[in-house]
């Protein structure tokens, strides 16, 4: 019988982890600056979070507790497989509870529960360059970052207002970090942008295909770009979560039947479960239980 292949702790070899940690340290030292790193092939395709996985792999230790979320949910394919990956190659404890996790790897959302000191949020980033669609040349965008030439970013917001009457960018909404670098907060909804501002948690961003790592250290200023007469606003939902009744949270629309039936539920599944356990019930919450 052949033996099962032995992996180094957290899959990556120690030299690679050191290389990535050096990139992370530089990224933390220069908030919002995209640090190039030598991204590795991971046992999953690009677009599945190889950047985030590499960052997580190089900072995780045996005592860490890992939570992985995908679009706010703990039970979607991406979240389940990455959690299983680290449970296998690092034998770490995993959780779905935001408060218990020391490392949270995320795609598209920041948990509703405010993060605390000692927690690290790792983002999976598809396109780290906020200026990419405005200026395709990488040599030019790097120069623009270096010289702080960010007028072009406002051209995009101008176009939004000219076309839609308001800033219609709802995700990957550009932010300025600590008054210096303009950064793409990965495809999180702009609803989450204010949570990045002065967060007590360390926020790390890994883009595997694009070979970039950037970071927002704890208690760092993160300001969403806007115009004086068109200030930044976040999304507001007219109704509360159908299951837990929460307001002022980010909601997903769920189709219930083929006759136009739908409901809005918390995108953050852990937050929703917590609230229901604490006795909060939304308009459809009871009906949901009766159906089961």
């Amino acid at each position: 019988m052949t033996t099962v292949a032995q992996y180094n702790f957290a899959y990556l070899d120690e030299q690679t982890k050191r290389m990535i940690r050096r990139a992370i340290l530089k990224a933390v030292a220069v908030p919002g600056y995209q640090v190039p790193f030598s991204s590795r092939e991971m046992p999953m395709p690009y677009g599945w979070g190889t950047g985030g996985v590499q960052v997580t792999a190089s900072i995780i230790g045996p005592s860490d507790v890992l939570k992985v979320i995908d679009q706010g949910a703990d039970d979607t394919t991406n979240a389940v497989s990455i959690r299983a990956f680290f449970a296998k190659v690092a034998q770490v404890e995993t959780t779905t509870r935001t408060a218990e996790a020391t490392i949270i790897q995320t795609r598209h959302r920041i948990p509703e529960k405010p993060l605390g000191k000692g927690q690290i949020l790792v983002y999976q980033v598809p396109i780290p360059e906020p200026l990419r669609y405005l200026e395709p040349r990488e040599t030019e965008t790097r120069k623009m970052h270096a010289l702080e030439e960010y007028g072009l970013m406002h051209v995009k917001l101008y176009e939004d207002i000219a076309r839609h009457g308001r800033i219609a960018t709802t995700f990957a909404y550009p932010v300025k970090v600590e008054g210096r670098y303009v950064m793409d907060p990965s495809p999180t909804p702009k609803f989450d942008n204010p949570k990045m501002h002065m967060s007590a948690a360390l926020q790390l961003f890994g883009a595997g295909r694009e070979h970039r790592i950037y970071a927002v250290p704890p208690h760092t200023e993160v300001v969403s770009l806007d115009f004086e007469d068109h200030p930044f606003t976040i999304q507001h939902f007219p109704e509360p979560c159908a299951l837990c009744g929460a307001r002022e949270v980010y909601l997903d629309e769920v189709i219930l039947d083929d006759h136009g039936g739908h409901m809005f539920v918390c995108s953050d599944t852990d937050h929703c479960e917590d609230r229901r356990a604490a006795g909060h019930v939304g308009p459809l919450g009871v009906a949901q239980k009766a159906a089961e």
Binding site: L152, D226, H230
Partner: peptide, 11 residues
Amino acid sequence: ERLMAVGDRHY
């Protein structure tokens, strides 16, 4: 664009 590049932030 040039106005925004020199810091004009009023749409």
